[in-house]
Each structure stands twice: as C-alpha cells, then as structure tokens.
C-alpha cells in the first residue's frame, strides 16, 4: 500500500540551523496493517508523516501510495487518499465553521467543490447519527462553531472527518499528546475502533509506551532520521514497555559512546 524508499529531507540546508530530519528512510506497509512509530525527540517521526502527506516535498527518494508515485504531488492532491489527525487539536478543524460545516467539508474530501448546497437532509441525519455515537452530547450542537468545543471533542471530530471518506492511509501524529488523560483514552479507543471496523491502513506516531505496546500489529522505532528497529507479528505481540525502554536506553548509550569516542580521538590525535 505505502512504499517509502530512501527518503531524505534536510531543513535549512547550508545554514547553521541545518537539520537532517530524514536520512534514508525505507519502509513498506501492507494494506490493512496498523503501524506504530516511536522514537526519540527529533528522530524524524512526524517528519516522516508529513513527507507522506505532502506538507513538503522530499529531497531524495520516492513515495508510492496505492500504486501511484506521489513523490512530487502537492498536499491537496494527496489528500483524497490520506486521512490525517494532527497533534494539535486545533489543526484539524476550522474553528469559526460549525460542526456540521466541518463534517460536510470532510464528507466531500477529494470531490470538486461546486455551488451545490453543503447541507442535505440525508447528510445531516448521518452526521447526527455518527456524532451521537461519540457519546459527547454533540449531536444537539451541530450548528455551534467548532471552536467552542474542548480539545478532546475536537480531536474526536477530526478523527471522524479523517475517516468519513475511507482513506487509503490514515496518519495519526501523536494525536492524543495534547489531551488530558481521560480524553486521550477516549480518542485512542475511538481510533482503535474505527481502524479495526474499516480495516484502515494506519500509521500512528506516539510517545506513549503503553499505546505502543497495546496497539497495532507492527512497531517501528526511528532514530536520527532512520528506521532503527522493526517489530512485526509475534515479535510485536511479545513486546512490553520495558523492552522498548531498554531499546531507548541502548540508543542513548550508543549516542554517548559516539560522543565520548570522538572526544577521546580528538584528545589523542588533534
């Protein structure tokens, strides 16, 4: 379904602030799999998701999705195939538009925007039905601006918008990191339900070791812009939070070794 091959991305190239975010990421994701991505800060997890969704174009490498080479496609052209939920609960919805208007826009993801009315009775009925399933009491507030809702409610609605039209790929970028624990649980539960119900191919970045071991059928650990570990199948099922922490500790020690080794060499030779 998704084929990422040798993708490189450097920000602010040639300046003192140069950041080599992706340094040759190669990754292949089968249809219907639910992949968790973890890694240290700045390891390129979010950059990878943004590269796939087209927030920027990559410097080298190719990205294929559902048989199309989308490497040079602009973001809006990829959007019909990709559903996204962002870390910031405010990113996925338009605050001054009502809940109904936001959902209606999402229900036409990938369609041409015409002069037709955006509210049909059928669509409104479907919205009421789907929104009431969230158990947040929002079905009576469809005509309220979405900006008046809480972060958890907005994130639940963003998830609904991202999956209203079934995407080829669902990208979840630490989408519960900014929520309180209760809302985070609720949004994770909703995500899990929707992914298994619609058999969505998904890529989820998380900082929570608990989510990383409990969810998904494959886990990728990134470090310094590369894929460091890739656990699948039985191996993924056996993983515990402690194992992951041990891997992180390994990475940290290896990093320190690099630095102290460099320091030693410098003292000896320079």
């Amino acid at each position: 379904m998704l084929e990422v091959r040798g993708v490189h991305k450097t920000f602010y190239a040639g300046t003192p602030n140069e950041v080599r975010s992706l340094q040759g990421v190669t990754l292949s994701i089968a249809e219907g799999s639910f992949v968790i991505v973890i890694g240290t800060n700045g390891c390129g997890k979010s950059t990878l998701l943004n590269a796939v969704s087209g927030t920027f174009l990559v410097d080298a490498g190719t990205i294929r999705l559902d048989g199309h080479d989308i490497t040079r496609w602009p973001e809006y052209k990829r959007a019909p195939m990709i559903g996204r939920v962002f870390q910031n609960p405010f990113s996925g919805t338009s605050p001054n538009l009502t809940i109904a208007e936001n959902l209606a826009l999402a229900s036409r993801r990938g369609h041409r925007r015409g002069l037709g009315s955006i509210r049909s009775d059928k669509l409104m009925a479907e919205m009421r039905e789907r929104v009431s399933r969230l158990n947040m009491g929002l079905e009576t507030r469809l005509d309220d601006p979405i900006g008046t809702l809480s972060g958890g409610q907005r994130q639940a609605l963003t998830l609904m918008m991202a999956t209203w039209v079934k995407p080829k790929l669902l990208l979840l970028d630490e989408h519960t990191a900014a929520l309180d624990p209760k809302s985070a649980d609720q949004v994770i539960r909703l995500s899990e339900e929707e992914i298994s119900r619609a058999r969505l191919t998904s890529l989820m970045v998380t900082h929570s070791m608990q989510q990383a071991v409990n969810l998904g059928d494959r886990l990728i650990m990134m470090h310094r812009g590369r894929v460091l570990h890739d656990f699948e199948g039985a191996e993924k099922r056996r993983l515990r939070a402690a194992d992951l922490l041990a891997r992180f500790e390994e990475v940290r020690r290896a990093d320190r070794l690099d630095e102290s080794a460099a320091e030693m060499l410098r003292r000896v030779y320079v």
Binding site: S53, E75, Y76, K77, A79, P80, I82, R84, F86, S91, G92, T93, S94, L105, A106, R108, R109, G110, H111, R113, M161, A162
Partner: peptide, 8 residues
C-alpha cells in the same frame, strides 16, 4: 492546513 488536508 485543514483545508489542504480536505483535498482543496
């Protein structure tokens, strides 16, 4: 950002 993610 939201409107680009909606394919517009």
């Amino acid at each position: 950002q939201m409107i680009r993610a909606s394919g517009v």
